[in-house]
Design a protein around this nucleic acid. Structure first.
Lengths: 337, 337
DNA sequence: AATTGGCACTCTGAGAGGCCGAGTGCCACC
DNA sequence: GGTGGCACTCGGCCTCTCAGAGTGCCAATT
């Protein structure tokens, strides 16, 4: 029923519609593609595809456009991998140069992603829930005030100023620092936090409240909602893709809300470099019915967060997939260094 | 020539146009405001105001809209201070609660600013050029690799991983840390950096390259363009204010480019709490001809950066001014703590 | 059974024309 | 200086029409 030619027709419809934005008709199809059959035949095929729910007409006597299901079938079975151009490779390569600061790496990567896909790019910061602690530092800033710095193996650095009920003194600070590092050397931050509850036992009565203040601050880090966050770039690409602002206002809102998008990205996170795609309604988010999300996990060795691009369902999926995968791999490589 | 009534007419035109978005005619004006003269008189006044370049007609037989010069005169001489509502005060108050982390404070402030003004809000991060160093920390992460953490008096924390040509060892690290703190105790970071050039003299030959690597990293911090940055919020408000995307695509681009906006904000920075306004063409930025910027400096005691809102020239200036000023003052107060 | 050419039908989008109303500018008058 | 009256202008909206694109269906062909 859905034989080869009909699949070829679907592919041609998707490709034409993505590049032109106009509903595509039977005549144009045979002109632009080597289908070697007549428009009438194509029309019959289109009727079948429409029956199967893969394409639709905006109105009678218009051409067809792919439905969400049509795009889904396209990306799952029809899309051919589109290799990156030399220029694209070079653009991504330049990410490798320069400093090792996570903020800067993420910032550059998200820009590159937006620029290469001409879509809105989002990168989730390495989640504190799944990363491991590489190092904890405790610095006395002033009497009864110290700075707690935590470095994760994804290169993320979190710092908190802690107001103490008493001054610790350099020696106690050093001991506490050592104990903190020892206690958090476990698998992930979330699991390590349990061990901290009994940490105060190793200290004399007078400094226990201060120790507890530091521990409480540390425990609060992964719990504060702010810690799960994402950065976006390329929002001005939205205006290019659709002339109607109602289409992309929800996207801007979703980016600002963060929570919704983070949930979505987390659901989609897979192995590093593996692509996950949500098309239109599949996002199950009000306002994002005409928006697709192409995402991939990244991280040093294992996946610690997700990145992706956000665009209209009418999107160049093969191209986006190639770029997203490439950026995810490069980013993972940098973080593993 | 520009007597009281004509100024009242201008004010009325600005207010009506801002609230309705429609060109305002003479009849509507006398109906909505207590001008106690006839429409014909208003028409004569309008002719004078138009002659003076303060208002204009989109086309013959349409009402008048204010020009940039009209808005300028309005904000300079006619706008009355609009006190914040209790709800607005409360919303800002909640900023004071919670943790002391600069990132979070800025993040919350920019959201509040966007929400209360219904505009796009931007906050420049405390500039590293003008802030003082409060503390520098040097942490050995691994052999031949350490983390450099710098804390400014605006609460900003910068960290860099430094790859060293040799391992420093705990003792040398401590000495270097002390010397760094001593050298940077000067007035501003930029000035303090000069003293660092001779720092390596105080070390033995074998660790000098490593010392120099740390110093170089520190010196590079304020120079990397990335360090002057800003955060934005409320971009989805753009869609609400103007149905036409060509209007706000340049704004989105300006926010992503950062450089342009940072330059503009820096030019406008004044004393904390003092308001600076650029209207339409005054921004002197291509693409921002129909955009206004209401900004104020903030900082702990002295001004270290600028924040503001970005919106269409057709904007509620008194309201925006009140909110921007309030947020700037609150933010300054928090940073000074 | 699949494919094709022909043909009638439908619907959108652009363009032309016409009308209404809002708003102005001007002028004579108070 | 302020006011009422009046002619004039012009954009927005509504309707109407028409061409073009595209379809669905059917009978003919391979």
């Amino acid at each position: 029923m859905l034989d080869d030619r009909r699949m070829a027709v679907l592919r041609a419809i998707v490709e034409d519609y993505v590049s032109t934005g106009e509903p595509v008709g039977s005549r144009g199809l045979v002109e632009r593609h080597q289908l070697s059959v007549s428009p009438a035949t194509i029309r019959n095929d289109m009727a079948v595809l429409e029956e199967a729910g893969l394409i639709a007409q905006p109105h009678t006597s218009a051409g067809r456009i792919p439905t969400d299901a049509g795009y889904r079938l396209f990306v799952d079975q029809l899309a051919t991998v589109k290799p990156l151009s030399a220029a694209e490779r070079r653009a991504i390569q330049t990410l490798l140069d320069g400093p090792l600061d996570l903020d800067q790496i993420v910032s550059r990567a998200v820009r590159a992603l937006a620029q290469l896909t001409h879509q809105v790019a989002v990168i989730q910061y390495p989640s504190l829930r799944t990363t491991r602690v590489r190092h904890i530092e405790l610095i006395e800033l002033a009497p009864a005030r110290c700075l707690l710095v935590m470095i994760t193996d994804a290169g993320r650095v979190e710092q908190r100023v802690v107001e103490l009920p008493a001054t610790l003194g350099p020696q106690t600070t050093a001991v506490l620092r050592a104990k903190l590092n020892e206690a958090t050397a476990g698998p992930t931050l979330e699991e390590a936090l349990v061990d901290l509850d009994s940490l105060w036992l190793g200290f004399t009565e007078d400094v226990r409240p201060a120790v507890q203040a530091v521990v409480d601050t540390l425990k609060a880090i992964p719990k504060s909602g702010y810690q799960e966050r994402l950065v976006a770039a390329g929002t001005s690409n939205l205006a290019r893709s659709s002339a109607d602002f109602r289409r992309f206002m929800p996207v801007l809102e979703a980016i600002e809300e963060q929570v919704v998008l983070l949930k979505l990205l987390t659901e989609m996170s897979a192995d590093s470099g593996q692509i996950a795609i949500r098309i239109g309604h599949e996002t199950t988010q009000a306002g994002l019915e005409e928006t697709s999300l192409v995402a991939a996990g990244y991280g040093p060795g294992r996946t610690v967060a997700t990145l992706g691009v956000l665009g209209p369902t009418r999107m160049d999926y093969p191209g986006s997939i190639a770029v997203v995968r490439a950026i995810a791999l490069y980013l993972s490589r940098i973080l593993a260094a």
